[in-house]
Design a protein around this nucleic acid. Structure first.
Length: 194
DNA sequence: TGGATGATCGCA
DNA sequence: GCGATCATCCAG
């Protein structure tokens, strides 16, 4: 069952944990890749200092204030892309950052895009999964129902235990537990947890 | 542990 | 314009 617009048109803090366990499907001319979502982070509106939407819309963040159920992709640190899903109703900012997925299908294509990387590490970071799935800024604004000029959608997964912890790699609102991981299999960078 | 590497944004 | 900042990754 494909996750429809209504799924995303809800409070971001409801959508984010509900996405853990769902599968992400990305189709390009090279083939299709599928991954199971195991780690996400919620980013809210102007009330969330760590969000790109803090301080109101800018040319980059305006998409977070627009219609839900589209991809928000941006470049970070000059070399890595991050994939987000826009949430909330029009006029309310929100997005869920995809931090890690577990490769399910299209492994050969992922390996091709990330040579020399063992399977378990193909998609275990925001920049890594974008590289493995072939996501770049061309995907910004693409609808999440597979109907855009780039094909991407999500499918409902089995209910799975979700654990909330603080977000990673940010400097503001560090204490908010807006990071959601699969409770059984927590994927994160080793040695960086306190 | 730090270097790569560039878009973004606030301030002028 | 200019410079500080940044939701990262990987080599050493």
């Amino acid at each position: 069952m494909i996750l429809a617009r209504d799924f995303f048109a809800r409070p971001t803090l409801d959508v984010a944990p509900a996405l853990v366990g769902a599968t992400l499907h990305v189709e390009t001319a090279q083939g299709r890749c599928v991954g199971r979502i195991v780690e996400v982070e919620a980013y809210l509106g102007p009330d969330d200092p760590a969000s790109h939407a803090a301080g109101g819309p800018t040319p980059r963040s305006a998409i977070m204030f627009g219609p839900p159920a589209v991809a928000y992709v941006y470049l970070i640190y000059g070399m890595h892309h991050c994939l987000n899903f826009v949430t909330e109703q029009v006029g309310t900012a929100g997005a869920v950052l995809l931090r890690a997925v577990e490769p399910v299908a299209g492994l050969e294509l992922m390996r091709e895009r990330r040579p020399g990387v063992v399977d378990a590490r193909l998609c275990d970071g925001p920049g890594k999964l974008c590289r493995a799935l072939g996501i770049d800024r061309d995907w910004n604004g693409i609808p999440l129902d597979g109907s855009g000029r780039r094909r991407i959608w999500l499918e409902e997964g089995e209910g799975v235990g979700v654990q909330a912890t603080p977000r990673i790699g940010i400097r503001k609102a560090v204490e908010r537990p807006y990071r959601f991981c699969c409770a059984r299999k927590i994927v994160s960078r080793p040695g960086t947890e306190g």
